[in-house]
Design a protein around this nucleic acid. Structure first.
Lengths: 253, 253
DNA sequence: CCGTAGCGTTCACAAAGGTTTGCGCACGAT
DNA sequence: ATCGTGCGCAAACCTTTGTGAACGCTACGG
């Protein structure tokens, strides 16, 4: 079962290619490593927006790579409030940490219609036994996730809402660009203001105010699920964005 | 150079023992693995409260394990505001992620007088080549860090200040207990309210109000740098604390 | 014995963000 | 055509948190 899947409309890059491209942004991959990745990919599955890819409490036997669409790690509290702790775009491992954590402490939810490929934990274990360098790159992938989390904490704790949102936009732009999903300074932005509120830890109403502020400052435009960055340098300054934590530069690892 | 160090007042557990204890809370260790850890530890160094163990932008050639005292990962913004993204206690790797990230995107600061042991990145690399299972446990250690981050994000985004503080107290208690640093429901708590403010993303004044609230609810007492949890069950309920993310249970990994 | 520094505490007021509610538009289902 | 429904938008009002300033306690050095 290599590339079967629920549907396969020719256009998006092949499953393992996307992942290899991501890992290669950290360090180069050898032929055997690419071969190993290729062998581990297990076929695609589609989800509608709002569906759980993985649910809190699950002990999944595989991890998932996003092929198309956006997803988020989300935690729902007793009062029904939801916090999205990170947003994922194509090429991202949404739950690689499930490999060693075993029990999911949060859910992964589709934020738009999306499609994933699976890699079984058995195969990941095999990689960790046989391919130390590839293992380090997978480990690094989870470390970058943690860096993204840390940045989110800084944004929530010490930036005003507009700065925090601007920072998120900068980060998503850089990440989308790394997988060729931005054209110029514009990209598809499939999140509603309510979803954005859950990601930023704000109320939907305040997200609306905050977007308006960025618009009035001529930093962005956002219409019909398309986001355009009008002045990258100003946006970076305004949000104090520093992309170091994304580690998007090749180095021997 | 096994246990030399700047000072060594007999009492705290030996360097590698502390680390082994931590990793063993995830899965059991073999004799060769313990031996490998023992070989990697490189001697201790002491820091005064407020000093940087590692600074933003550094490319350290080693990672540090806390032996004594508390430390925090911290990021300082342009306006001087500081956010502490995580708090570390003895037994914690404060910058294991530096091994693969290379360039530090934040500082690590001593929150109380503290002492560390070093493990060179060369030796970590050697471990990652020769000891796959031990490598997985180190990886897991960073995954738990990320889980702690995610929990912090939920606390900041969707809990009121008192809930967030209560949650942090629950987490610290569980972590301290895992390394035998809690006696009953009391433990030494070396953080000033100002430091706590930087960790919670609040102002020092509001931290004071928040502590008062927990006191008035008879959940905790905090005096002379000693914190006592007066009613664990009520504190857990109040903060919606769920320790799953700490992964403090042995499983084959 | 005094001065000082660090820290916790409190108060009054300001700012940021949440809540409630309502309107209008686009779009799909019937 | 029309009726929901989801979403963006906005206003009024309320709650939480931040700010600036003062005061007191305690430890410590001169």
């Amino acid at each position: 079962m290599s590339a079967s899947g629920v549907d396969a409309p020719a256009s998006p890059p092949a499953l393992h290619v996307l992942l290899a491209r991501k890992l290669r942004s950290y360090d180069s991959l050898s032929e055997p490593e690419i071969g190993a990745l290729q062998q581990t990919i297990e076929g695609a599955k589609s989800f509608a927006a709002g569906q759980d890819l993985v649910s809190e409490g699950d002990r999944p036997g595989y991890s998932s790579v996003l092929i198309e669409g956006w997803a988020g790690r989300s935690k729902t509290l007793a009062n029904g409030a939801r916090q999205i702790t990170s947003i994922h775009i194509p090429g991202d491992f949404v739950d690689l940490h499930g490999f060693l954590l075993h029990k999911m402490d949060h859910s992964v939810v589709a934020l738009s219609p999306c499609r994933i490929a699976k890699i079984s934990h058995e195969k990941l274990r095999w990689i960790s036994e046989e391919f130390p360098h590839l293992t380090r790159l997978l480990w690094l992938n989870t470390l970058v996730d943690a860096g993204i989390h840390r940045n989110e904490i800084v944004g929530m704790g010490r930036l005003p809402a507009a700065g925090h949102l601007a920072q998120l936009i900068c980060e998503l732009y850089e990440r989308l660009r790394a997988v060729d999903l931005a054209s110029g300074y514009a990209f598809e932005f499939p999140l509603s203001q309510a979803v954005l509120a859950d990601a930023l830890g704000l109320s939907p109403v305040h997200v609306n105010r905050t977007i308006r502020e960025l618009r009035e400052r001529n930093l962005i435009s956002l219409r019909a699920r398309t986001l355009k960055i009008l002045d990258w340098d100003k946006l970076v300054t305004f949000s104090q964005f520093d992309p170091t934590y994304l580690s998007q530069f090749q180095e021997p690892r």
